[in-house]
């Protein structure tokens, strides 16, 4: 368990975790005393983290979902699947690095994978446009979905974006149309579609690859119609009220499961996926295998029909006859 960046609310464990990392790096000297101390400290850190993470506020979950060390789409693709081959471009304008797509294998099954990709350092972040796709990114994703359908391959999507990019070029090239086209086309795909929110599920830009038979969420990810900051700026007229907005919007996995918007929560290791990515990959892979097995029982007609009913049922209203 090695952590490099601590969040504000993790202050109580920061010192202990740093000390633990230090001890681990000296471990080669093989001192008896240090082994015992490590075990003790490790237990202490785990206990404290478990405690902290069991009562995160919605705005703290948002911070974890956006954590700079959190596994991103390519990390999941490379560690859950094998033989990944990245495929590029929308065949019309350009290749959008904010969405990655390709072929891969889950066990013995060839599948199509795609997701928004964020960057780790400044250079990468700019290259990936902070995980905010342009229309050509969504059109590349659409091309891959249709490819998957033609070859009868299941589709796995990874959602991790603050939102679709709000820019001049994006608007000129039809950001809204690109998202809308994906929503409509995804609802008729004749192959299994499994979407997983791994970090930030930001609005229409997230949903554009999220119309799936099963929608999964990593335990400390968020999914929302607007960012807490954006919502606070509009409804509270004060972006600093993001904490209140995060709470009101009900953006965490447990709330969304209750609302029936997602189907399953995938457990993260103690202290979040970034502390023990291997455990996160393993957990997700197990759920993927289960879920795909379930969906493979269904005919293409049933898949399309049930997916329609799933989204058809979303929404709450009253009706006076």
């Amino acid at each position: 368990m090695i952590c490099r960046h601590w969040l504000e609310f993790e202050k109580p464990v920061e010192e202990a975790e740093k000390r633990l990392a230090e001890l681990l790096s000296y471990n080669t000297e093989g001192q008896e005393r240090s082994a015992a101390e490590i075990a003790k400290l490790d237990k202490k850190v785990r206990h404290a983290l478990k405690d902290l993470y069991s009562k995160l506020t919605p705005s703290q979950v948002t911070q974890v979902a956006r954590h700079q060390d959190r596994p991103y789409t390519l990390d999941y693709i490379q560690n859950v699947f094998t033989e990944f081959v990245e495929l590029h471009g929308d065949r019309a304008f350009k290749d959008d690095p904010a969405i990655v797509c390709g072929l891969a294998k889950l066990g013995e099954t060839a599948v199509v994978v795609m997701g928004q990709q964020k960057g780790r350092n400044t250079k990468e972040k700019v290259h990936r446009n902070f995980g905010m796709p342009h229309p050509e990114g969504y059109r590349k994703a659409l091309r891959m979905m249709e490819l998957a359908e033609r070859f009868g391959r299941p589709i796995f999507t990874f959602i991790d974006t603050p939102g679709a990019y709000p820019g001049i070029g994006a608007e000129e090239r039809g950001q809204a149309e690109a998202i809308a086209a994906n929503l409509m086309r995804m609802s008729t795909l004749r192959v299994p579609v499994i979407a997983t929110v791994i970090g930030e599920g930001g609005s229409g830009g997230a949903l554009a690859i999220g119309v799936a038979d099963r929608v999964l969420m990593m335990e400390f990810s968020t999914y929302s119609v607007i960012s807490p900051e954006g919502c606070a700026a509009i409804l509270w007229k004060d972006a600093s009220k993001a904490d209140l907005a995060a709470k009101a919007l009900k953006i965490d996995a447990a709330e969304l499961l209750k609302l029936g918007v997602i189907d399953r929560i995938v457990k993260e290791p103690v202290g979040g996926a970034h502390r023990e990515p291997e455990t996160a990959y393993k957990n997700l892979k197990t759920v993927f295998i289960d879920t795909l097995a379930e969906l493979r029982e269904l005919t293409p007609e049933d898949l399309v029909g049930l997916r329609y009913e799933k989204f058809r049922a979303m929404g709450v209203f009253a009706e006076r006859k």
Binding site: L207, G210, Y223, S224, V225, I251, V261, R312, G315
Partner: peptide, 10 residues
């Protein structure tokens, strides 16, 4: 919130 987002898919 999320219910309104889902109306886009519906």
């Amino acid at each position: 919130s999320i219910l309104s987002l889902m109306q886009m898919a519906k």
